[in-house]
């Protein structure tokens, strides 16, 4: 699924990275616990989270994730934005809650759950 489709499905606002909306993502992970995210390597994944701090972007960076969706209209800080831009990441924010956002993406065809370890 392209990041552009994620944005449409979630009716999300682009916070940064609008140059990269045509990148493909193959799996997704929804969590507020970053160590849980770090436990499962997936290829070209999107992270859905309600957590807002710089370690969210760092975690995504370590995992080579290409997009982060902030649910419940959470607003990332300027520091997070700078980090995301440095790493060519797309940041999106949606009004939807975590459950609904994940459900929409899954129903939309983003079901990949490939572990690369």
């Amino acid at each position: 699924m392209k990041i552009r489709q994620i944005q449409e499905l979630l009716d999300a606002e682009i916070v940064c990275g609008d140059d990269h909306l045509d990148r493909e993502v193959y799996s997704a992970c929804g969590s507020d616990m970053m160590s849980d995210v770090l436990a499962y390597v997936k290829d070209q994944a999107v992270l859905l989270t309600g957590l807002v701090n710089t370690q969210v972007v760092r975690t995504a960076e370590m995992m080579d994730m290409v997009c982060i969706v902030f649910v419940r209209s959470k607003v990332p800080t300027q520091e997070m934005l700078d980090l995301a831009k440095e790493n060519d990441m797309v940041l999106l924010k949606t009004k939807k809650r975590m459950y609904e956002a994940c459900g929409k993406l899954y129903a939309g065809g983003l079901v990949g759950n490939k572990t690369a370890k």
Partner: peptide, 16 residues
């Protein structure tokens, strides 16, 4: 509350 301390740190280090 910052997203860590779930007791996954050391197991993750071993995993990778």
């Amino acid at each position: 509350s910052l997203g860590f301390g779930a007791g996954m740190g050391l197991p993750n280090m071993k995993r990778y």
